[in-house]
Design a protein around this nucleic acid. Structure first.
Lengths: 125, 125, 125, 125
DNA sequence: GTGGTCTAGACCACA
DNA sequence: GTGGTCTAGACCACA
């Protein structure tokens, strides 16, 4: 369910945080759903447990996950308006802005960029 | 001409590398053009000369800039097919893929994403 | 294992890059082998850590070393045909050409040069 | 007669010094022979006159060239035993030692190295 | 004038 | 523990 790439320049804990956040916002992870334990997850991805732990803690402090003694982490109840299209678009705004900047500096036309983006959106990961 | 943000999480030297790379690919910096000297650039952005120097060295090792002893760095001759639309699209492919992944996980429709992207592309930076 | 001479006109970081490159090509450093940490190496040779770091970074960008967050640098897997005799001879080709040029200009006979070279090759460093 | 490569990592003045030294030792430049003027040489190789001047001055201080007011630089009379085989071999000793070190670290056999060197010695430049 | 190297030393991110 | 970034500042080589 989770894809962690140790060779990426994005820190592993960050990759995990980003994915959980988006899966929750996207509805693939619903409130109450349980996440793999730190140990399980660490073992499966051969990653240091502290790395998973850090990601979970961040998600907890964001109110996205909930910790209950003795139980696995769970997806928290959604706050109001957290899952509307606007809220989700807001989440990728920084990515969109960075992309737009790159496109301008590369003097790529909007149509070329959009065509390429649609291609990527159509592909399965 | 260059925008360096010391508060960004992207290292300063990396910001400069990215911008020069894109300005060259985009044609705003043509082969033979001289870049500001290390000291000039450092002074203008109140940044340590070594930070600029590191960026220039990386760009030299990529073959984008050329060093000529005693002279400022210059934009190198382009390698064949380096500046076609395809090559430039290739440069932002990682960004496009990351965006597509985010969009899928957020269950955002292609049309919503594209509409938002076009808005950003239309804005002046 | 490494010999760094601070009085040489060859920059310290360059000496290290050259040696690692050759030890890897020669097989004394095998893929997966860990290098001394930046701090260790710096302390042992009483050199600034950044100097070692610079060498390691260059070797990483050449694909000779691999960085794994939180761990010491490691020798990367060899690219195909990277370690054959031909590939290794290729590495000293510039040195051979410079030597041949000198010999010609000094009007030294091939036999004199070769005899002298064999003597040096026989000596322990 | 002289080959100056501005892209080499060896400084231009040094390239010139090395070549003159070897051409004199090799007998291609005999005592009394005149060298091109600083201006001429600088113009021919599109190099800064100061660069040529620096090389000539170094050669003069070594006693290889002589300056006579109003005349071009001339090759000085040879000092005793300056042109014997042993003296000339001495001049390339540092190069031979560097080569031997590289060969050892690359674990190249003496025979492979020598074969390759003979090939280079046989080629015209 | 140009860029390069190096040290001292602070501070950070990651595992 | 690991490596990375950055500054302050000295000193050098080259043109």
């Amino acid at each position: 369910m989770f894809i962690l790439n140790p060779h990426s320049s994005v820190p592993i804990y960050q990759q995990l945080v980003d994915q959980v956040r988006r899966l929750v916002a996207g509805g693939q992870l619903v409130p109450g759903a349980e996440l793999p334990s730190v140990r399980e997850m660490a073992h499966e991805h051969t990653v240091h447990p502290m790395t998973i732990s850090k990601a979970y803690s961040l998600l907890e402090s964001e109110g996205i996950l909930e910790r209950h003694r003795g139980k696995p982490m769970r997806v928290a109840a959604l706050r109001r308006n957290q899952s509307g299209v606007a809220a989700r678009l807001k989440q990728i705004e920084p990515q969109l802005e960075a992309l737009a900047l790159s496109a301008r500096q590369l003097e790529l036309s909007s149509d070329d960029i959009v065509a390429q983006l649609r291609k990527k959106l159509g592909e399965k990961p």
